[in-house]
Structures are given as C-alpha cells and as structure tokens.
Nucleic acid binder design. Sequence first.
DNA 1: GACCTTCTCACCTACGTGTTAAGC
DNA 2: TCGCTTAACACGTAGGTGAGAAGG
Lengths: 211, 211
Amino acid sequence: SYSSPNAQVVSPLDPCLRVELQDLQLWESFSAAKTEMIVTKPGRRMFPGYRVKFSGMDQKAKYCVLMDIVRVDHHRYKFQNGGWTIAGRGEPQVPQRFYLHPTSPASGQDWMKEIVSFHKVKLTNSCGHSTVGKFLIHSMHRYQPRIHVVRSDDVSTLHLQPRSTFSFPQTVFITVTAYQNQEVTKLKVDNNPFARGFRTNGGKTRNAQSS
Amino acid sequence: SYSSPNAQVVSPLDPCLRVELQDLQLWESFSAAKTEMIVTKPGRRMFPGYRVKFSGMDQKAKYCVLMDIVRVDHHRYKFQNGGWTIAGRGEPQVPQRFYLHPTSPASGQDWMKEIVSFHKVKLTNSCGHSTVGKFLIHSMHRYQPRIHVVRSDDVSTLHLQPRSTFSFPQTVFITVTAYQNQEVTKLKVDNNPFARGFRTNGGKTRNAQSS
DNA sequence: GACCTTCTCACCTACGTGTTAAGC
DNA sequence: TCGCTTAACACGTAGGTGAGAAGG
C-alpha cells in the first residue's frame, strides 16, 4: 500500500492530495537496469535526483514535507555473472531519521507552485560525520525513498501527527560502493551533467537533468 | 537603543542573552572607509558576511533567529570629490521582510554551539525575482542589518512574539550598483576569496574569511 | 584469490568576484 | 555630459562525477 505502479499516488487521509514523481522516464531507464546508488563515507548524492510535484493540497493550509529511505526486503545482495542475486540475510534495519524538506513549513499554494527537489540529500555508510541531510544506510542492500506529508506547521511535533506517505517502485535501488553493472554506469555518465567528462560520444549534449 | 558602540549587545528582555559580531576587525576596516555593498537584479551577497555568536541563551529553550535590513536615515547619497554627501530625500522606506535563519527553530544549546552565519543572504534592487533569502533595497541609501531573537518554536506566529533586537554600528553600509570608493574596492579584493583573481600583490594569500 | 571498500585524481558544473563597456 | 545601472566576461572558489589504484 506504500507503492503504486503509477507515478502519481493519492493520499488516504487527504483524498485530493497527489504526488507526481518527476523525471519518470529517466527513473524507469535506471530501474530497468536495476538502479545502483553509490554510498560513501562523506556522503554521495542520488542520481537521478528525487523530485516530486504536488497537487490537490489545501492552498491555505500549512504542510511539512519529509523524506526517509527504507529497506525494501531483508536480504543482502551480490552482483554475480552479470546479475543481482541474494547473498544471505541483510543487516538489521535501523529506524531511519526523517529529512525535513527545508521549505517546511509552507502553505499548500507554495508547495504546489514549483517542483520540490530532494537532490541535495546524500547517502552515507559512516555514522561518524554530521548527519544533516544524510541517510545512513548499508551497502549491498535494497532501499526505497518515501515522501511524507504532514498537515501542520508545528515542526516540533511532526512525528506525532498523522501523515500521508508516498513511494514509487521506479525509485527502488541497490546500494554499492562501486558500480557493478556497466549498463548502470553508462546511464549515469550519459545523464548526470557532473559526469560529462566521462562521456565518449552519443551522450546527451546539453539538456540532461541538472542533478 | 538598537545599536551599541561595542560588538556585544545585551537583550533587554532576556538579560543573559548576548550577541557578538564576528570578523569585527574586518568590519571596522570597511566601516572606516565607509562600507559599500553592491546591489544587483539577481541579488548580491554582502561582504564581509554577517556572522554572529550567541551566548547566555537558555540551553533547553527553543529560539528562532531572524534578520532584517533597515534604513539608517532618510537621505539619498552620492559620491563626489572622494567622499559621500547627501543628495536629497531618500526613497520611502518599505517595510522589510524578515529572513528566518534556516536553523530555526533550534535550542539555545544548538544556537550557541557554533557561529551563526547569514553570509548567503543577498541584496537586490529588483522585485521581479523570487525573494527567498533576498532583501529588496534601494541603491545609494544607507542601511544596517539587524538580528532578532524570538523565544519560540512556532514559526507561524513569530511576528506576534516579543523579540530581542541587536545591531552593530560597524555594519552600516551604503548600497551601490558599482563601487565608488577605490579604498573599499581594495578591501573587498584583498579579503574576499572569490575576488582573489583581482589581487595584485600584498593581499592576504590564504586565510581570509571564506565569505 | 575474490570481493568489497577507500582514497586520490582529472574533469566537470555551479556560482561568487570585480572589471569593462555599453545603455539610459 | 554626467551619473547611475546593466550585461557580458575572465578568473577565482566550492563541490559533484566515475576511473583507477590501493587497501582489507
């Protein structure tokens, strides 16, 4: 009930509220190749960046928007013979911190005005560093980001409020410390502007997602 | 009553609360030459960056910290014969928006833990663009930033709460669209790392304020 | 040895500077 | 003309890429 085959999901609590995943085609290209996300000690961004568009909010009401990243299953994975296979029991899932989108709190009108981006969040495998804007996760496990919407402007009691939760199956990924599947690497290089230096030819020249 | 000859000011509402201006020596060098701040359509940062340190807060209590920038007098200025002179009546002062420091709300302990920086705020003379983190002000007028501390974690009613206001005479500046005083230009080039490309010699080589 | 992690690097994007010339 | 504003520019800082070598 947290996922949907479509890129637009309806809230049970707030029946008009809808969330639409951006860059859907890009996400699906990665998903078809089994998305990998690098995780490092200092923290690494996700690519594609996680961006959504809201509609059906109460224009005047105040909302907070949060993200977390949760495990999809209980397995550890390995890349073998060109594909991903289960490699035993996964690490125990630690309860995730929520990342509060910095626009919070804001009116429904403000949230719907433009695309809401989480492209600055980072994935880390080290608990030593500061953890603002970083998700601590294990390598070689499957994860999925989730978006939570809380109809409140009181940031201090968000965890007690009812919330609407959205997630998209296209955004499931496996964490790695180095890319395993060359097809994934090629998609990253061809579409992430910061990796333009590694393009050979045929890659998108200008209009890729600006991370 | 909003200003003080010192770099550390005491709150009337909260007698232990103190605010200390950082980079005081740098601010005073500029002030001695009559500080100029560039204002542009897309927005320009201030240099020196506005940074303060808090002490004497209630460790457990929640605070919000805001900035605004207000007119110091009612004049318009011009630069003539190497100095600033009054050039008639200033534009009418428009009520300023507050900039809420993104750390807000946070505990006194968190605020006091490290230097609180407003170096990302920008000065603009165009109301067309988005105004988040930007102050709309007129060129050729004198302004002064102010810091407001509100003992509350309810962001939505901040404007109704009592607040302690601090400002420092060393931070008064005149807005310009291009630098008038060469002495000011030299101070900017010698101390702002982003202007390192314009240094001739004798400028600080490394340890300048990282804006 | 096989597998995974970490570090350094060249290369890129993004954007903060004053300068300069053009515009009004 | 004069005073002020704007836009394009070269040159910096800051930081996001995968590659490759080294480490465990």
